[in-house]
Design a protein around this nucleic acid. Structure first.
Lengths: 335, 335
DNA sequence: ATAAATATTGCAAACGTTTGCATTTATCTC
DNA sequence: GAGATAAATGCAAACGTTTGCAATATTTAT
């Protein structure tokens, strides 16, 4: 094993050419004759050489790194328990790698609120993808105003000075609710946190659907975790009885928590209470009864996020973009 | 907004001192008078200055970055659908941040098998944490032999030339199985892939438990996903009927897939078939009936992984370490 | 064959830190 | 109060790339 790390200069010496030539050859610069390029690339591989990214980043002022920060509200445990956010991250990772970019992950850093500075000024990353709008968008807004290159996964209809990619949450809420109404539901509970970025739009969709059928709203505001959903449905049944015949949950995890509470009290799903979730996580299909839900196209979203960030870095102006959702009907809403 | 990025030299000029002093002051070097340090740190904050990490990494030959690679077998879809692996990553992220380290995430890179070279030689990261042993450990072994600083989340009892941190999978399999036997199970199926790193140990524990009670093994080998579990249990019931009265699943996702198949065919859990999973993901508690399982202490594991990697980077010799597991009994195994 | 145009390579100066060593300034000792 | 020791700061050389420009080699046109 080579004890000493080999560098560009060494490689140049070995090949009997200048370092500039090697550098260009390895970067496939057409200035260099194809033949020479091939030779040098082979030599590099042979000697197990790879460029020192620190040096190259210093020189080029580019990192090819994108920071991804999971923007969770401190008060909720959503992040760790919710598979959906992590799925989004996973898709972003794939999309980035496909572009030869790397992913610097962060979830706790959001608290110390100079994250933009931390990542960009220090040249740790070229740009930032924020996953989740959270309850409070001001620090994102500030960062965007300060010229930080960033894109956000969230609700694209939110007015903003930065590009947001995300599902049509309003339509999702609308479709979920309409679907339940069309299957005979009259008293439909919205289970979630209407204050929260994306979710408030889902709630608006819910309201709109109810309004057009002249039905009454029942909003149950909870922390968006499955255990919180479980508890609140339990409490509801205990204290007020079964006054509803359907639930629109703001996420699948929430829906599954509610489902557990219902099943424990022998409330039949979907006959007594029909249920629609949001996200289409793996468990939606595995649960029993399987969970109807609004599927979000995370893969496409990830591609878009990366693409828009790159465009922004290239100096282009980018806009928010709405992604189609799809109602997946499973057992939990079929009567 | 400052148009030009401010650098160390500028700060020095502003303060009327040399760059060395500023550099040392910002790194809290005791060579510099406390008073000067405070003053310069304040100045830096005021001007929103942060060190250019590219330059500093180049100079110090250290990145303070750890690469985390999710080591999934290509043939399975485990990674994206399984919340457990992502939970581990999330915990590692926390542990790293606590040490002031950053996390470079990778999941697809494992395929192109010079990952060690890619991360370390190129100085993208100081060390590597591999999450999951996968079926084939040779490329990890090679990397370790080549002196790449790395630690692995997997089964610590696997003989290796690198440090592995992970649960006592053998004991987990043993406890899960014994628990079922003590609750009256006679014909216990092991559902999983006994070829797979960590899981083979769980299977060994299962075998040992059965042996000591002189019971017969029923191994159902599947891909470790919930859908695969669902299908195979379905097929089993269809073709062979209910010849078993308990299942030890190699993971919670697999257990939940099996549970769905059982429920669909009105097999009562736990009365007809008792069930124990592995991991204790959030869904284990939310499912109905709730799922008994072997809890893995991921948080402690993450801390250890980081700690051991740091020790290794400091030149110390580090050993594999077994982490205690805990049997969580819930409804799925109570009769 | 020669001049002009083009293709290929090399020189050397950055990029922004850190750090060994030299230097200055402050503190102590007798 | 002078000399010696200790504390605080500054000088300048790295770290390993990339790239504008200059220089050389090759091809083309006449």
């Amino acid at each position: 094993m080579n004890n000493k790390k080999i560098k560009l200069t060494d490689l140049a010496k070995l090949a009997g050419v200048s370092t500039s030539t090697v550098s260009r050859a390895l970067n496939d610069n057409p200035l260099i004759k194809q033949e020479t390029r091939d030779k040098l690339q082979r030599l590099a591989k042979e000697h197990n050489f790879s460029l020192n990214t620190a040096a190259s980043r210093l020189r080029t002022q580019k990192t090819n790194v994108v920071a991804v920060i999971i923007n969770l509200d401190e008060q909720t445990e959503q992040s760790i328990s919710d598979p959906f956010l992590l799925k989004v991250v996973s898709e972003i990772n794939l999309a980035l790698n496909q572009q030869g970019l790397e992913l610097l992950l962060s979830n706790s850093i959001m608290a110390q609120d100079d994250w933009a500075n931390y990542f960009i000024n220090s040249r740790r990353a070229d740009g930032i993808i924020v996953v989740g709008q959270g309850k409070n968008q001001t620090n994102i807004e500030n960062a965007a105003n300060a010229g930080i290159p960033l894109v956000v996964w969230g609700d694209p209809k939110t007015p903003s000075n930065y590009a947001i990619v995300g599902s049509d949450n309003y339509l999702g809420g609308l479709q979920a609710t309409t679907h339940l109404i069309e299957h005979g539901a009259k008293n439909i509970v919205f289970l979630g946190d209407p204050e929260h970025g994306e979710i408030s739009e889902r709630h608006r969709g819910y309201s709109a659907a109810l309004a057009s059928y002249k039905l009454k709203q029942y909003v149950v505001s909870i922390d968006i975790t499955s255990s919180s959903a479980y508890q609140s449905i339990n409490q509801l049944l205990r204290e007020k009885g079964l006054y509803f015949d359907a639930i629109v949950a703001c996420s699948d995890m929430v829906a599954l928590g509610a489902m557990k509470a219902l099943k424990e009290r022998y409330v039949s799903i979907p006959n007594d209470v029909a249920l629609v979730g949001f996200d289409d996580i793996a468990m939606a299909d595995i649960s029993h009864p399987s969970l109807s839900t609004i599927r979000q196209n995370t893969q496409y979203a990830a591609t878009l996020l990366v693409q828009k960030l790159m465009q922004q870095l290239a100096g282009e102006k980018v806009e928010s973009q709405v992604i189609d959702i799809e109602l997946i009907t499973r057992q939990s809403s079929k009567r």
